[in-house]
Design a protein around this nucleic acid. Structure first.
Lengths: 149, 149
DNA sequence: ATATAATAGTTGTAAATACAACAATTGTAT
DNA sequence: ATACAATTGTTGTATTTACAACTATTATAT
């Protein structure tokens, strides 16, 4: 579906402007699909992201700042995100004894189990991208990486 | 900058998964830049988007549903967005006499003046995309459009 | 006519975000 | 030792979002 049809705008100032709007629009579109998919599991995309980050380091713990800098959306508040996940029993939080300013956060078995269930539930968000070929996906990654300078 | 570096993740399940994350990440990145740029003018990206939509139809009025379906982020609440813009004197709201369920919304001179100032302030958000060529921008648009099916 | 359905928008409310101010702890320089 | 700065997180608060329930108006069917 062309972006022109999706937002009913026929003309753009330039290909660059159109690309900027297309990225914002597609990002929002993908976010909403992902959000709907995760709703069945009782977590938000941001929480899911944090769990995946923690799984990547499992069984090691991570400090908050480390999590934040790996997050897709840097503007969400990691303190509160982690607290939500702790309430659900998905992560563990401990003051670091070596440096009492920092907090060691790690994923629990329950968190790992949730991610496993999600993995097993099939393609999830990737199903959404089935319309493009692997070559297109690579090309997309190349251009987006270049774009961010 | 590669997405691997940006979110410190070395491996992805597939090019498709990497592309999905790249879109979400780049969308959020672009949104934040845009948001910061617009802050000087006292409006949010969503409000800016509504103003641009209204300018596209000026001097004709639009009804709320029409605005909503052209918005980049369909999930923001057009009623409240328009009310914010009305409080700032950027748009006008009138109950439609022909069909009293609907509301006619149009951009005011003040709203047009703000957009003009923004246009004049230079490339704005597009400056951000300067790293890619026009050919890349076109390729990006092609792939994103295809991706959304 | 009347009831029912469809359209167009509004509003209530819990949760999340943005942003800045605020601890608490550790490191560094005199 | 003491003061000052840097690091690491937390919290306050206004704004925004998500989502559903709601009102008002118009259209359709019996």
């Amino acid at each position: 579906m062309s972006i022109e049809q999706d937002i009913k705008q026929e003309k753009f100032v330039s290909e660059h402007q159109k690309a900027a709007i297309n990225i914002l629009y597609t990002g929002s579109w993908l976010y909403n699909i992902n959000s709907g998919f995760l709703k069945k599991y009782g977590i938000t995309p941001e929480q899911f992201n944090v769990l995946r980050i923690l799984r990547g380091q499992h069984p090691k713990a991570m400090m908050l700042a480390q999590i934040t800098c790996r997050m897709i959306d840097k503007s969400s508040n990691a303190t509160r995100l982690v607290e939500k996940l702790r309430q659900k029993g998905m992560v563990k939080r401990e003051i670091c004894e070596g440096n009492r300013r920092q907090v060691d956060i790690s994923i629990t078995d329950k968190g790992l189990a949730l991610l496993k269930k999600l993995d097993a539930d099939g393609p999830g968000i990737m199903e959404t991208l089935k319309h493009i070929s692997k070559a297109d996906a690579m090309e997309l990654n190349r251009i987006l990486d270049k774009l961010r300078g």
